[in-house]
Design a protein around this nucleic acid. Structure first.
Length: 181
DNA sequence: AGATTGATCCAT
DNA sequence: TGGATCAATCTG
């Protein structure tokens, strides 16, 4: 199967569509410690300036500036003083949007479930904030040829955003259902 | 259910 | 400059 690094054009589209399309793609980390990869099985979309669950809904600040920028760039931040979260910026410049990668099936390590554990596994921290994921250096996403039918995608509300009122109810979490049998 | 932990944001 | 908040995780 061909391996293709996901390009800026892949990310520079409607965020909900990119979120669905990221399921079944692979996250790859290459550093001095070696090569790690995993198949993405759960993501969440954070869409636009009005999404109260999104950091960007509070405006453009030093922290959220990256979400307003170029698609295909990493947004990595620290939550609760101890865990990192890894996102990919999507859609057009000037429109804040990103996708949080929540879970992967890690090659040789089973399910890595949860954005904090995922970052720990892949050794992702804030030094990778604003990293260009489309260059194929250090950290990137790639297509290994898997086709994911819509019937295997489960939609659900996002996790941990109860503060966001009606925006917390949006079914903007996407999970890949395992093929049964 | 409670503790943990520190970057970020804005005014209590 | 201080305090509230937080896109989570672990231990009970």
């Amino acid at each position: 199967m061909p391996r293709k690094i996901l390009s800026p054009a892949f990310f520079r589209r409607d965020t909900l569509q990119v979120a669905r399309d990221l399921l079944g793609k692979h996250l790859v980390r290459n550093n001095k410690a070696g090569l790690l990869a995993g198949r993405i099985v759960e993501v969440e979309a954070y869409v636009g300036p009005n999404d109260r669950a999104s950091h960007a809904s509070r405006g453009r600040t030093n922290r959220t500036d990256v979400m307003f920028g170029q698609a295909g760039i990493a947004y990595v931040y620290l939550v609760y003083g101890m865990h990192h979260c890894f996102n990919v910026v999507t859609d057009r410049e000037g429109y804040p949007a990103a996708i949080l990668v929540r879970a992967v099936e890690a090659d040789g390590h089973g399910l890595v479930d949860g954005p904090g554990r995922l970052c720990r596994h892949f050794q992702i921290d804030r030094t990778l904030n604003k990293w260009d994921l489309t260059l194929g250096e250090g950290l990137w996403l790639e297509d290994r040829g898997e086709r994911v039918p819509a019937s295997r995608i489960i939609r659900a509300p996002r996790i941990g955003v109860d503060y966001a009122g009606k925006w917390a109810e949006k079914p903007w979490r996407f999970r890949l259902k395992e093929a049964d049998g």
